[in-house]
Computed example of a mutant assay.
Amino acid sequence: MSASIGTRPFNDRSKQELRPIQLRPPKTAQETSPRDGTVADEDEGLFCRVCRTRITTPEEGVLINGRHLHAFFNPAGIVFEIRCFRSAPGAVGHGPMSTEFTWFSGYSWQIVLCAVCQTHLGWRFVGTTASHEFYGLIASRLLEG
């Protein structure tokens, strides 16, 4: 069984082509900046591929279900490779929360867009029984800087 990305089949060979992402070790409390979207180094971060707005930083990367990088398909069969982050100050929620076809059991989701150009960047996931949340951002829509 395979799904497709446009006209490109997504199968076992395609899964092997997914590139691993290098995570930096998390910073200690003394090294992190306030969670208000500010970052000490303006050239460091992950940016919207369309408008170059900073969305988050590699240090915000988190492991969800033991992995930072996941590949999922939606009900239409479109495959998304997502990276997980604890925060994404450059992304804004759009639309209602939903539990339909959630990729992470126990989480509801909401679409997130670039705060500047409104490009669909991924989803915000919020625990339905706990106050835990994270962002699943589409890897191909981010640019590393």
Rank of each mutant, 00 (worst) to 15 (best):
Ser105Gly: 12
Arg54Ser: 11
Arg67Asn: 15
Gly127Gln: 05
Ala40Arg: 05
Gly95Phe: 01
Gly122Lys: 01
Phe80Cys: 07
Arg49Gly: 08
His94Pro: 03
Val62Phe: 10
Thr99Met: 11
Glu59Asn: 13
Thr56Gln: 13
Gln118Ile: 07
Cys51Ala: 12
Gln110Arg: 02
Glu81His: 11
His120Val: 03
His120Asp: 08
Arg124Phe: 12
Ser98Cys: 01
Ile55Tyr: 04
Ser87Phe: 09
Trp103Arg: 02
Asp43Cys: 13
Gly122Glu: 01
Gly95Asp: 00
Arg124Val: 07
Glu81Ser: 10
Arg83Ala: 15
Ile111Ala: 03
Phe104Trp: 00
Cys117Arg: 05
Arg67Phe: 15
His70Lys: 03
Gly122Trp: 00
Gly77Gln: 10
Gly127Pro: 02
Cys51Gln: 05
His94Ala: 14
Leu121Arg: 00
Ala91Trp: 01
Phe47Arg: 07
Trp103Thr: 00
Thr99Asn: 13
Ile78Asn: 15
Ile82Cys: 02
Met97Phe: 10
Thr56Ile: 09
Arg83Gly: 13
Ser108Lys: 05
Phe72Asp: 03
Leu69Ala: 12
Leu121His: 00
Val92His: 12
Val126Ala: 12
Ser108Gln: 04
Tyr107Glu: 00
Gly66Trp: 08
Glu60Trp: 10
Ile78Arg: 14
Phe104Tyr: 02
Cys48Leu: 06
Pro75Trp: 11
Phe101Thr: 10
Thr119Pro: 08
Phe101Asp: 15
Ala115His: 14
Arg124Tyr: 09
Val50Gln: 13
Ile82Phe: 02
Ser108Glu: 06
Pro96Trp: 05
Met97Glu: 06
Ala115Ile: 08
Asn65Lys: 08
His94Ile: 08
Gly61Val: 08
Asp41Tyr: 06
Thr57Met: 09
Leu46Gly: 11
Thr53Cys: 12
Ile55His: 06
Phe85Val: 12
Arg49Ile: 15
Cys114Ile: 03
Val112Leu: 02
Glu60Asn: 14
Cys117Trp: 00
